[in-house]
Structures are given as C-alpha cells and as structure tokens.
C-alpha cells in the first residue's frame, strides 16, 4: 500500500492569459510521501498545488487524485476536494465564526456529519495542534501562529488523504514559525501525505522525501533532500539555494 499513487499530474500546462504559469509539469505523489516545493517567486509553485484541488483550472494535461480524474464537472471537483486539504499563507480563517465553528462548518455542510460528531472531531484535531483550549475564541483573538494551527486543524477535520501547504509560515512573525512547523512535522510523522510550498529548508531537510525546485513554470530538479542540498545539479538551483541559504 505504501506505493499507492495519490496524485498524478501529467503534461500539465496552465496559462494566465498570455502568460504561461505551468509548463509541461509531471508529478507523481505516493501515499505517505512528503514533498517540499521551492523556487523563486513567480516560478509557479503555488499555482502547481492550487491546480491539485482545482482552485486553478489547467488548460492541458491531466491530474488524477486518489484515482479520480479532475475535470470541469462539479462532481469530480467535489470528490477531489474531499480528499485534499489545504492550508494558506494568509490562514483564511472565517472571522465571524469561533475556532470550533471554523472547524465544523465544512464537515457539517459538505460531509453531512452531525453537529455533535463534527464537534467531537474538531476538538480532537484542535487538541492535536495543541489549541484545544481556544475553541470558543474568534480568529482575531489568536496570534498568527495559533491561527495557522487552527487552519491546519480545520483542514484535517475533513479527514483528507493529502494536505497541501501554500507557504504556511511566510506570513508569520519569526517567533511563531516554529510552532507551525512543529505541528507540520507532527503531521508528517503520523504518515500524512503532504505537499508543501515553503522556503523553510530546515523543514525540508527534516521531513521531505523529495524536494522539488521550480523556475519559470517548470520543475527544474527534484531529489531526496540530502542530494538536493549537497550537490544540486542545475546552475539555476545552485543560484537559488545560494540566495536563500545565505541569510539563514
């Protein structure tokens, strides 16, 4: 079962008008794999993961998630989104709902889970991201790090098979980065399949099975973190790593 393919992208091309954001991207993710995607801004790394849950439509190629081919039908999009959780750079918690309500909205409305059950699940995951005691608070009453941990719990409440992270620590004050990364490491250690767009190379070293480097909408290089960091093959990768590791 370890070899079960969860995500398969083949020949994916995406344009924004005349601008090509993804060029012929192939990516296969197996169950339990942790993948870190890095690259300069505008390289298409966010676009890549946003295509997986169809926040962005692609123009060419195919994406299959957990055996379901993603096309334009609402049914296909629904099925895929049930399997894919996402955490955003700007948290995107719903400000008018308590932490608990944030976590139960989708299970109740999209999965038709009862309120009691949804709340039990929510409290379990809030405990797991160590924020169980804040369940009745509103997002604005929490720190950035706490908000991002709630966002992780909220995504987990839908019991996804894959978690996508779109620069989850980029909007955080430095002292809060660690608590979010620790939560993500915990999730990784529990066997969650993860694709994470991040510049946290320490995190990549610690949990990634593969690191992917993107530039100008293409996957330039990928490899196990050890090899990737020790001797990157491409000049473009070396340049990028030189730039981001210089100030770490």
């Amino acid at each position: 079962m370890q070899d079960q393919i969860l995500i398969e992208m083949k020949g994916v091309q995406k344009w924004y008008g005349g601008y090509q954001a993804l060029r012929n991207v192939d990516l296969t993710v197996r169950k339990g794999e942790k993948i870190v995607v890095c690259g300069p801004s505008g390289s298409g790394k966010s676009t890549l993961i946003r295509c997986i849950n169809r926040l962005e439509a692609i123009q060419q190629g195919s994406i299959v998630v957990n055996g379901h081919r993603l096309d334009d039908s609402i049914k296909a999009i629904d099925v895929v989104r049930q399997d894919v959780g996402m955490v955003f750079q700007s948290f995107n918690l719903f400000p008018h709902m308590t932490v608990l309500q944030n976590c139960t909205l989708a299970p109740i409305r999209a999965r038709r889970v009862s309120k009691t059950e949804a709340e039990a699940i929510a409290r379990k995951y809030l405990e797991r991201v160590r924020i169980g005691d804040q369940a009745e608070k509103y997002p604005a009453q929490l720190s950035g790090g706490q908000q991002q941990r709630v966002a992780i719990a909220r995504a987990l409440c839908m019991q996804p098979k894959v978690m996508l992270f779109d620069e989850p620590t980029s909007a955080l004050d430095p002292e809060m980065v660690k608590e979010v990364l620790d939560t993500m490491i915990g999730l990784a250690n529990d066997g969650m399949t993860m694709i994470c767009v991040t510049h946290e190379m320490g995190f990549a070293r610690q949990v990634a099975d593969r690191v992917i480097f993107m530039a100008e909408g293409q996957i330039i290089e990928e490899g196990a973190p050890d090899a990737f960091f020790r001797n990157p093959k491409h000049a473009r990768t070396r340049q990028f790593l030189g730039e981001i590791l210089a100030h770490h």
Binding site: N53, R81, M86, F88, S90, N92, F94, H96, L105, A106
Partner: peptide
C-alpha cells in the same frame, strides 16, 4: 478577501454555501 472564498472551496463547499455561510455575514 478572495482567500475566504478559496478556503471555502478548498474545504469542499459549493458556491452557494460559500456565499451563505462564509461571505454574507462579513
């Protein structure tokens, strides 16, 4: 903010649900 709507979609909610539960009150 469009991130609110995207968060709703990413959680598997439909357009009408996103409007009713996420967008309308704020």
């Amino acid at each position: 903010h469009k991130g609110q709507v995207e968060a709703g979609y990413a959680l598997g909610l439909h357009k009408g649900q996103v409007f009713r539960f996420i967008v309308l009150k704020p």
